[in-house]
Design a protein around this nucleic acid. Structure first.
Lengths: 309, 309
DNA sequence: GACATTCCATCATAAAATCAGATGGAAATT
DNA sequence: AATTTCCATCTGATTTTATGATGGAATGTC
């Protein structure tokens, strides 16, 4: 049994929609005999009659009605093929993977990502969330095409970077925690004597030197959600992106601590975020659009609060 | 931009699977030049290169890898078309609608219906549940191809019928109901003086004469579920298929009443069920299989308890 | 009821797509 | 170095697909 040609299927669908062979021929800009020929060929391949021609106008037979959804499925898949192929030949990448630093407020991304989807629907976009160094490593490895990562200290590296804003960090603890009772600025010694909660990377191997660790005893947690749970439970103190604990601070579930000179001054309470991509990997159309978009959005605002869209 | 032919897509997939153009040609039983020709044609239509031919063996390009799922989707849809078309040309119907009397235990059907689906996967089966006359009418109207209905009294009618069993009816009331307190057989006068719950048809027009109505006051309910709720609430008495109230009787939420001569003897406490279809509508292969299967299953057993599969 | 219109099937023929087989250069294998 | 295997290309034959004209049947109009 031979395969039906896509042309035959398009003609069949045109006849169904137009209601007659000649009208379909006119709509397709072809001769009427071509329509008859195509439908006959399709009927021969299917082994059933698709239309009942005994009346003045052809009407779909039971078989034709049953096969119509199949035909629509095929043509839909073919249209998908065309969409992807058209995108590819126009310079679009097939898929675009963006890795996002876990602390980055996702609410800041949804608008841009939705726009990306409407602009380039044929591009399969994927988002991955990684913590700290793992995000940058994903871009360096080529596992992701682009990343929103903590800004690299040195610019001349295989990554091209554009600042997109800063994440404001606040030091918090539960109201019941001893440090919450201290009035006025906290001395480094106060912090050092209490358990500090720190987010560490997933993979232990090749761990970068800790930043912002002030306490003697620390617990290392896999992700920010776990850290927040521990903080809420009063198990220790730690720094968090402000947009994540905003609600907790407002409702009093967490208290803000005010260190005199947090971490001895070698770390900023604001974490700069950049969008990065590898210089040597040629970005597609969608990738360039997203990079530029994230960079220009970032130029407008300094703080990423994650509150408004 | 022209449509890719299904042949081209099959060749493309064969090359991907075989790993080389010539191997694909051998697998397809065609000349190697035909494979080259087909791939080139597909590349021209897609506007991108699908394989990197610089090496000894061709390797899928990024574009080819991106388009591969599209191609597989198209070919899958085409195979679906072939399956349906093959079934139709072999005499299978496109869809098969079975209407089932609401009192029929659905658990008795699932096995047969599952078998039907595996035997004839291309047949779209639909189940409708109707009460009393509405089920038979659905078959007579042609709205359903087949029905499990209360057996017709007269055989010579446009429906061909085969018995499939009987539904055992029991007369029940809630434990708090006055009739539940009566010991020994119930006289017709006892029943007549209490509210009887009766399932009536949905459409009021052309209502058939009531059967099994013994009381002066009756409430007519839309379906068995509503009737059971009313019975459980103690609002009246009525008859129910045994398999539906089995649990209620076992746990004591309902009590069985024992009428001396229920309904004056003009109605059986067992309701015969038949599978019916119109004589004048030619049944397809799947329809004939289902009819025969239901008829032979029904010949084995008399009572439909719905307990075991 | 006669006429024009619109419908679809068919035919002959022209255009296009597709194929097989032969040939050649490049890479891999021996 | 010789051989095999790979793919691209060319040519001619075959098949497929399209066109335009023709005719019979149903519909619509006056």
């Amino acid at each position: 049994m031979s395969d039906p040609s896509v042309e035959q299927l398009r003609v069949f669908l045109a006849v169904v929609e137009a209601g007659s062979f000649s009208a379909a021929a006119r709509a397709l800009g072809r001769a009427q005999s071509a329509v008859t020929y195509a439908v006959q060929g399709l009927e021969a391949e299917a082994g059933v009659q698709l239309f009942d021609r005994s009346a003045y106008r052809p009407v779909l037979s039971d078989a034709g009605r049953a096969l119509l959804p199949c035909v629509q499925a095929i043509l839909g898949a073919v249209d998908g093929f065309h969409a992807v192929a058209g995108g590819l030949s126009a310079g679009l990448e097939a898929e675009l993977t963006l890795v996002v630093e876990a602390m980055f407020p996702m609410s800041r991304l949804v608008g841009t990502l939705a726009e990306l989807q409407t602009l380039y629907p044929s591009v399969q976009t994927r988002i991955e969330v990684e913590s700290l160094e793992a995000a940058r490593r994903a871009v360096l490895d080529g596992r992701a095409d682009m990343g929103l990562v903590i800004s690299p200290e040195v610019e001349p590296d295989p990554l091209q970077a554009r600042p997109v804003g800063e994440i404001e960090l606040v030091v918090v603890a539960a109201p019941g925690h001893p440090l919450a009772a201290v009035v006025g600025p906290l001395h480094p010694e106060d912090l050092r004597d209490h358990l500090q909660l720190v987010v560490s990377e997933r993979t232990d191997r090749e761990r970068t030197p800790d930043r912002g660790v002030a306490a003697r005893r620390t617990w290392r947690l896999a992700d920010l959600g776990a850290k927040r749970s521990m903080l809420l439970a009063g198990l220790g103190w730690g720094s968090m992106p402000r947009h994540i604990v905003e609600d907790d601070l407002a409702t009093g579930r967490l208290m803000r601590l005010r260190p005199a000179s947090w971490d001895g001054g070698n770390r900023m309470p604001r974490l700069p975020i950049s969008v990065v991509r590898r210089r040597d990997r040629a970005a597609g159309l969608a990738g360039r659009w997203l990079f530029d978009r994230l960079a220009t959005v970032g130029a407008d605002e300094v703080a990423l609060t994650g509150q408004r869209d």
